[in-house]
Write a protein that binds this DNA or RNA. Sequence first.
DNA 1: ACGCCTATGCGAACACCGTACGCTAGGGTG
DNA 2: CACCCTAGCGTACGGTGTTCGCATAGGCGT
Lengths: 247, 247
Amino acid sequence: MPTGKPAVPSVWARQRNKREQPALSQDRIVAEAVRLLDEEGIEALSMRSLGTRLGAGATSLYRHVASKDELIELVVDEIYGELEVPGESGAPDAWRESVAACAGSLRAMILRHPWAASVLGQVGLAELGPNLTRQSERMLALFHRAGFPAGEADRAMNTVIAYVIGMTVSEAAYLSMLARSGQSEQELMEGLRRVAEEAVRDLPLLREGYDERAGEDPSRLRDEGFAYGLERFLDGLQARLDALGAH
Amino acid sequence: MPTGKPAVPSVWARQRNKREQPALSQDRIVAEAVRLLDEEGIEALSMRSLGTRLGAGATSLYRHVASKDELIELVVDEIYGELEVPGESGAPDAWRESVAACAGSLRAMILRHPWAASVLGQVGLAELGPNLTRQSERMLALFHRAGFPAGEADRAMNTVIAYVIGMTVSEAAYLSMLARSGQSEQELMEGLRRVAEEAVRDLPLLREGYDERAGEDPSRLRDEGFAYGLERFLDGLQARLDALGAH
DNA sequence: ACGCCTATGCGAACACCGTACGCTAGGGTG
DNA sequence: CACCCTAGCGTACGGTGTTCGCATAGGCGT
């Protein structure tokens, strides 16, 4: 008789159901999903695995989350909540430091959750969760106070966000490849170097760069590369501010 | 007897096998994959569907491609081949136009293949296919000729690539959401506006921006936003060049 | 001309995925 | 007490990437 067994409610299940909590909630699900993603990466996130971690069946999640896609949107907005956007900091010409701090915080957030790299391109900034909108508003205020006129502040903001995300996503993708490979960064770079050697043989400029960076600390190089671009960027924005000021 | 039927070789199959081509090749597979992605998007790409389009069984592809992941790497490198990087253009102070042309070409490429947005974050720039390395070398030459010293040219290049990719990926994600929704851009924006209205009620700056852009042509706004950031960026790089020149 | 060898295609099968559906149990409300 | 509504779950379906072993056919050595 294939009709379902009565879904035998073990004492534990009954106890859990009884009281304590609703046992499952969108917040719990999203929080656990972030933990799972941090620990095991994007490929390990399935409704079944997430359900198991929550001591629940896979399909139970659908009572609180419409689909896996929606779950991912929620997860992305969740980590946007970790951003630290400086508030009113008095001096309006401190905008450079404030924006740099923002950028650094965004980069740190993505590197803390490297799986975000594979997911930001699908979600985009289009889906506006509460955290993202809140942080955007705060960040926009930075540019307003810096002196950008209304129609330009959001462009300036989008511009620096785009830079940070583009830069960091590529870092994160590299790091997650590194993690997948199971090698140390030294080993991987040596391997890449060997593989690339032939391809790069007649590409002198790339080769030059390769050699130049050979002995350096990769993590420091990444930090410096990020800072370099950010400085150029802020210089350009500052120049624009000056031009506006001189109208 | 469950052992396979002799896989009856229809006349057609025999004919096709006989001559013409090896019938399947990595190039054919990659090219068809790009076509499929352009026409039906990233979700429609499966080994089975791609095999069908090629008149082949799904598993036949594995003779020419190690895995779907590798296929995606190949596909990404394939479209990098579409980039147009200006070569020797005489005047070394034409670097601004050259880099801007590069950036525009990269943006156009991504917008031509919007699925790239969801894929660039997974592949990153880490996997260096022949096209990507070749184009990087050419682009690097631009910065060298502009006057950036060896250790800085690649940073400058990565910086502007990061900006372009970050900016365009977010555009592409938005556009693909638009396409999925099946609405016109006007309708979608009106819908978003209504949904966002309440959330944005007490976020005056975001609201201001929303209202300001209400009647404008979205496509032109995107172009202008991209150009705005790029100009700021190039200004910053130019300033750096000047500082270097004055050493 | 024959027979082997290797490269190529493919069908079946496996493990896993997202998710629709209908059932159950239990607490809250009349 | 009877009722309903909600949260959880077992089952099942269609689809996925990939493995494996078999069938085939062309090229090559003899």
